[in-house]
Each structure stands twice: as C-alpha cells, then as structure tokens.
C-alpha cells in the first residue's frame, strides 16, 4: 500500500501562493467575509507563512506554503474524542466533517496550526456555490476542516483506473497544489516506493521536517534553500 507524501522545495518556491489558490478552488474552501477575515478566521488549508522568524510582528522573510503536514504520528488524532480525525491506511490524516462535534481539541493540539474551524456557516448561496467542485463536500458551521491531500483525487484516480481496466499508478494521483505550482516546487508521490522522485528528494541532504524535534514524523517534507555564502 502506498504511503503518500509531499516534498516542497523551498529553493524553487517563489512564495507566489498559487498552490493556496488552487487548493481553495479544488476543495471548496469558503472565503470568509472581510469582517470575519479581520477576526482571524480565514481558512487556508494551504497557508503561506514565513519560512523564518524575524522576531515578533516584524513580518517578512521568505514565505513558504504550509499544507497539513500529514504526520505519521499526528498529535491531533490522539486527542479527538469521536474518531472524526483519523489516519487512513495510506497515511492521510483524514477529517470526517459529518462526525466532528466541534470541540476544537485537535486545533489546540496541532503544533502546526493546520486545522481550521467553521465559526459560521460559510457556505455561500449567492452564486459562488455554482463554482463548487462536486467531488468535495462543503462544510457546515461548527466543524473542523483541514487539508486532506485532495483525497477525493485519489478516489477518482482509482475509479478511473478501474474503468480503464488498468492498474492504478502512483502518478495518477496528484493534489491540486502540486499540480498547480508554477515553479514545480511541490513534488508528490509514494514515499514507500524508493524509486519515486518524492522519496528520493525526501532522502536529500536538504530535506527537513517542520518541528522535527516533536517526533510527529510529517510526511510533508521541506527542502531547505541552499545558501551561497560568497556573496557578502
């Protein structure tokens, strides 16, 4: 069975946020109104965050995309009281919107702050709903949502393979962010397949996990930038 993972090359990444926009379109992520946004309630499964810290409130620094890190040892799953968030056999940290009771324990437990809450019913009925992706359910008020590695795309790819009467291949399945990245900075694939590009990149000396010290074993790995020191 595959173990899906992602490698984000920060040396290639330009911080353009195309991945985040693609993600919003693909996963029917509601845009919250400006008033809600001002209350810090924007939902960004693929958020663009500073890659380095420049001290409090200084802003800036190179930006990097941050999806759900899809930990192999996810702190969020442990604390869920109702099995609303769980690890699928293929290593995707899934979120069951229909089961979630909205206690937000997983949000409090996630060290990467990748979980988002529907403070209101953000589903739109003013025409924007016509642009929704029919493959992804929209979320009601009061539940937590997060990046699912575009899990529906995996299901679609499997179904397509079945219809075309051929075996399912790992390259049939790519999340929207990886597909969109104009700088080809996001690599996606099966980490257990040692020949796949993603697992080769993951073994690169530039590979780093976010907050590695926590032992969460993220399946989204970053390749750090190379620094050339000779320029003063």
């Amino acid at each position: 069975m595959a173990r899906w993972g992602m490698v984000i090359d920060l040396d290639r990444c330009t911080g353009c946020a195309a991945c985040g926009t693609a993600c919003k379109a693909e996963n029917n992520i509601p845009f919250v109104d400006p008033e809600e946004s001002a209350r810090d309630r924007t939902i960004n499964w693929m958020d663009i965050i500073p890659a380095e810290e420049h001290g409090e409130h200084n802003g800036g620094g190179p930006m990097m995309p941050r999806p759900c890190l899809q930990c192999d040892n996810p702190p969020c799953i442990k604390v869920c009281p109702v099995y609303a968030t769980y690890l699928t056999p293929e290593g995707i940290v899934a979120q069951n919107f229909g089961r979630c009771i909205g206690c937000r324990f997983c949000m409090a437990a996630c060290p990467y702050t990748v979980k988002y809450f529907n403070w209101h019913d953000y589903r739109r009925k003013d025409g924007f709903h016509l642009y929704e992706n029919p493959d992804v359910s929209t979320r009601p008020a009061g539940v937590v949502e997060k990046c699912t590695f575009c899990h529906h795309r995996l299901q679609l790819a499997r179904e397509r393979a079945r219809v075309e009467k051929r075996p399912f291949r790992a390259q049939d399945y790519v999340p929207a962010c990886a597909e969109t990245c104009p700088a080809e900075a996001i690599e996606f694939g099966d980490l257990d397949d040692h020949n796949s590009r993603v697992s080769r990149l993951k073994r690169s000396p530039r590979a780093r996990s976010l907050l590695q010290e926590l032992g969460t074993k993220p399946k989204v790995v970053y390749l750090v930038r190379e620094h050339q020191n000779e320029i003063g």
């Binding site: 985040g20 845009f31 400006p34 663009i48």
Partner: peptide, 14 residues
C-alpha cells in the same frame, strides 16, 4: 480569494 491573500508577508487581507 485574491483579497484573502493580498500580502501574506504582513498578513494583509481585504
């Protein structure tokens, strides 16, 4: 969606 990410470097939105 563009308004939501006007300036990620300073958290500029809307």
């Amino acid at each position: 969606w563009m308004q939501e990410q006007l300036g990620p470097h300073v958290n500029g939105r809307w």
